[in-house]
Each structure stands twice: as structure tokens, then as C-alpha cells.
Amino acid sequence: MKTSDLKLELQAYVDGELSPDRRAGVESLIAGDSQAREWVEGLRQISLLVRTNEPDLKVPSSREFYWSQIKRQMDQAQASKEIRPASAALNWFRWVVPAVGVAAVVVVVVSIRSDRQETLLASNFDSMQTDSSAVVFRSESDGVTIHWID
């Protein structure tokens, strides 16, 4: 094992990151190696030192001011949360309104086309009537239809 790998292994031992097998291996190594023992002790000391002496820093503003800034952000977040459902409904309308509009246009176009077709048929009939001077008479009660063609 390279020295740098060994040092990382010793550190992992100090940090409790080794499997039981590897841990036992390191323990037997440090039992017979004074330098490895020194490394372990040094790492343990610095770790404990830092862990138990976290810098004690204070918020550089008064309680009231700090809280007022947080409260303002909380209120803003709450307000935007309340607005969100309305905007969601607005989004829904944004999709529905054009769809309804398109559907309305389609209905109008279809109805216009169908009117035009009816007009066309009627005009054909008229012209046919005009051209041919044909008259149709039907009696439902007698079950008779009479065509006069000039």
C-alpha cells in the first residue's frame, strides 16, 4: 500500500468509516507501527478539536430586525402561494377560451356552408322550375303525385 493510501486508510479508521475486517487490519497495523499510531493520534486530535470548537458567530443585526426581514419574506411567499391558484385558473382559461373560439368559428363556417348548399339546391330547383316550368302536386290522402311539365 502506498503511503498516501495508508494515510487515507488511517483517517477512515479514525472517522469510523471502515468495515470490521479493514478495521481489524488497521488495528493490528497500528499496534506494531509507532508512526501509524502517531498519525492516528494526530488526526483524532485535530478532528476532536474542530468538532468541539465550532466558531461561535453571532447574527450582526437585532432580533427584531432579523425577524422582521424573515417575516416579510414569509408573508411574500404566502401571498404568492395564495395568488397561484388564481393564476392556475387563469392558465386554464387561456387554453379554454381559444378552444371555444375555434369551435365557434367552426360552427359558424359549417352553418354558413350548409346554408349556402341549401340556397344552391333551392336556386337549382327554382331554375329548373323556371327552365322547365315543372309543377308538382301531391295528395297525401289520395296517395297521388302529379307532375306537370311544360
Binding site: P55, L57, V59, Y66, I70
Partner: peptide, 18 residues
Amino acid sequence: FEQLIFRHRDKIFARAMI
């Protein structure tokens, strides 16, 4: 919640500051 902030604000600030 304000009381929680008052109690732990220095620790949270310190962690961010570090």
C-alpha cells in the same frame, strides 16, 4: 416560530458564515 429563530439564529448564521 419567531421564538425558534431567536433561539437558533446564531447557529444557523454561523454555519452559513463558515
